[in-house]
């Protein structure tokens, strides 16, 4: 995280990747598949949101663990801001997913286990922000919310990665459907998809670092 604050090179990479993804992702040839057709381009915008969300939440949990070992306003701020941006990514993921589902599955919400699980996952983080709002003492707020963050993140793992695989799902990779590798993710799509994952995740961290730097300045002014 310290390196991300001090250096700029990754921001250039992020811009290049996202320009590449949003132009080439919309212009390049895509495989013609029944039902999916051109909507497969949403892949570069929908799936990376979830990857970005998980990476941001992971960062948030790491800083929560640091906060418990070494309580400081800085750790608390970082973990809270990463969780906020992660939640925004999650909301965007749900919206893009619903958009995609309208054209492929016929309706925006078809009670797919992964859809439900991700909605619950977002509920966890709304509860986290609610918890932060309801404790007035700053140190107590930092510690209790860090504990809940870790607890909830671990509870989220079976919800997102184990349970959907046990029931039938419309998503690839669940309930006997082939996973990503066996799916029709051919090399031309992959050449855009992986940069998209990296690019969107970097963008998330970029927004988070801006908010964290603002927060750190505010802490300094208050002190």
């Amino acid at each position: 995280m310290k390196k991300l604050f001090k250096s700029n090179w990754w921001k250039y990479i992020c811009v290049c990747l996202l320009v590449y993804v949003s132009t080439w992702g919309l212009l390049s040839d895509v495989p013609r598949l029944p039902i999916l057709n051109e909507t497969i381009r949403v892949l570069h915008f929908h799936v990376p949101m979830w990857f970005g969300m998980i990476f941001l939440f992971l960062g948030s949990v790491i800083y929560s663990i640091k906060q418990l070992g070494n309580p400081s306003e800085r750790n608390d701020l970082i973990s809270c801001e990463l969780a906020k941006i992660g939640t925004i990514f999650g909301i965007l993921g749900i919206l893009t997913g619903m958009f995609w589902a309208t054209f492929t599955w016929g309706e925006p919400w078809s009670s797919d286990p992964k859809q439900n699980a991700s909605a619950v996952g977002l509920l966890i983080y709304f509860a986290y922000f609610f918890l932060r709002g309801s404790i007035t003492d700053e140190q107590q707020k930092a510690r209790i919310s860090a504990v809940y963050n870790i607890f909830a993140f671990v509870a989220l793992i079976p919800l997102l990665f184990i349970l959907p695989r046990m029931t039938d799902s419309l998503h690839p990779g669940n309930g006997g459907n082939p996973g990503f590798n066996a799916y029709d993710l051919d090399s031309s799509l992959r050449a855009i998809f992986y940069p998209a994952v990296i690019g969107w995740t970097l963008l998330g961290y970029w927004i988070a670092t801006l908010k964290i730097r603002k927060g750190l300045i505010e802490i300094k002014i208050d002190a």
Partner: peptide
């Protein structure tokens, strides 16, 4: 927290769901 009864439900349900 200040509102323990409500918090219990809000924090608990997502965790308990699996």
């Amino acid at each position: 927290t200040n509102s323990a009864g409500v918090m219990m439900v809000i924090l608990g349900f997502p965790v308990i769901l699996p």
